[in-house]
């Protein structure tokens, strides 16, 4: 049995690699704007790294297992992930989010700026609400990437936005616009979307964060009508800066923070797609909902079925067609 398991693992890895090579050879029209967006992201990332200038040392006081230590790291270069690399491989794999000075959630791959106190959070800490929100937000972000992969070009999928994570609603949400007003999703389609999420999780892609100016974000999203509309109000709330996240080649706007990589997603089901409003003569807003567990959490299918039924109810989050000015609270992304 161990030999068969080893064979299966080897064969599956080889097969997955070969299939990835095949899919990379496919080209489509939308890949041009996607490539340009990624190119701009890479350029800005490189520019910000080069703009650090003189490398200052910072003191990072780590609190937690196995013991409290003080690490000397590079300012604006070292990330909480690099701190975890000094501790152990288990810390690198298990840490989903970092906590700076006991109160500020920090992405694992976001550079630290000054001396601080660092805590590494995983899903088994005593107060997991901060990391739960980050996980929920990451699921919404991953759902956008999965929808981009699964939908046909003829459907003219446009990702609108995803509201802030509301764990009490029982489902993470992504709002999209389709050029069809009578899409009634069947079980096969929902299963295909769930499979895309599972594939993304299996690829273990790193989720990178980047703060950019509004004009650069406008340039990156100029081919997206809804992103261009949202950018002025987003940058108005955050002092002219826009926070972008990248997963593989998928880039979206979000306030953050998110967990470190897609491998933290375990059991996942995309349970519902509700039509919320019509958009123009032939399009419509749809709200895609799902529920997920972090990896490492085992739940039997009856209990997960209860969560799945709960996640099918329409989410009470702000609808994408509601006027944004009416709600002053910071809810978008």
């Amino acid at each position: 049995m161990s030999a068969a398991t080893k064979l299966h693992k080897t064969s599956w890895c080889a097969l997955r690699q070969l299939q990835q090579y095949r899919t990379k050879a496919n080209f489509s029209g939308s890949s041009a704007s996607l490539a340009k967006r990624n190119d701009l992201f890479n350029q800005e990332q490189r520019r910000q790294r080069d703009a650090v200038g003189r490398i200052d040392k910072i003191e990072v006081r780590y609190l937690g297992l196995p013991e409290d230590v003080t690490l000397v790291m590079n300012g604006n270069i070292s990330t909480p992930f690099n701190c975890a690399q000094h501790l152990s491989e288990g810390h690198c794999k298990r840490s989903a989010l970092a906590l700076i000075d006991g109160s500020v959630p920090w992405d694992m791959h976001r550079p630290l700026q000054e001396s601080c106190t660092l805590q590494l959070l995983n899903f088994h800490v005593s107060e997991p609400h901060v990391v739960n929100k980050a996980f929920w937000r990451t699921c919404s972000f991953m759902l956008g990437a999965a929808l981009n992969r699964a939908f046909k070009p003829e459907a003219n999928l446009q990702l609108h936005s995803f509201p802030g994570p509301n764990i009490k609603s029982g489902s993470f949400v992504h709002d999209i616009v389709l050029q069809t007003q009578n899409w009634e999703p069947g079980k096969e389609e929902m299963r295909a979307l769930s499979a895309e999420m599972v594939k993304l999780a299996a690829q273990d892609l790193r989720i990178e964060r980047l703060d950019v100016q509004q004009d650069l974000a406008q340039e990156m999203f100029k081919d997206s009508k809804y992103k261009s509309e949202q950018l002025p109000s987003i940058s108005q709330q955050t002092n002219g800066r826009v926070t972008l996240y990248r997963l593989g080649d998928h880039i979206d706007i979000s306030r953050g923070p998110m967990v470190a990589s897609t491998s933290f997603l375990g059991k996942c089901v995309i349970s519902a797609a509700h039509k919320v409003a019509e958009e123009g003569p032939s399009g419509a807003f749809y709200r895609i909902q799902g529920v997920a567990l972090p990896s490492g959490f085992q739940l039997n299918h009856v209990a997960f079925g209860v969560l799945e039924e709960r996640s099918k109810k329409p989410s009470p989050a702000r609808l994408p067609n509601e006027p944004f000015e009416e709600q002053q609270q910071l809810q978008l992304s």
């Binding site: 064969s11 599956w12 699964a150 939908f151 046909k152 389609e189 295909a192 979307l193």
Partner: peptide, 19 residues
């Protein structure tokens, strides 16, 4: 399906069960 890719529909079950 008018919306979801055929390849995604056909390979959906592969993501959930080992070969």
């Amino acid at each position: 399906s008018a919306v979801v890719k055929e390849s995604a529909l056909k390979t959906a079950m592969r993501a959930f069960k080992s070969k």
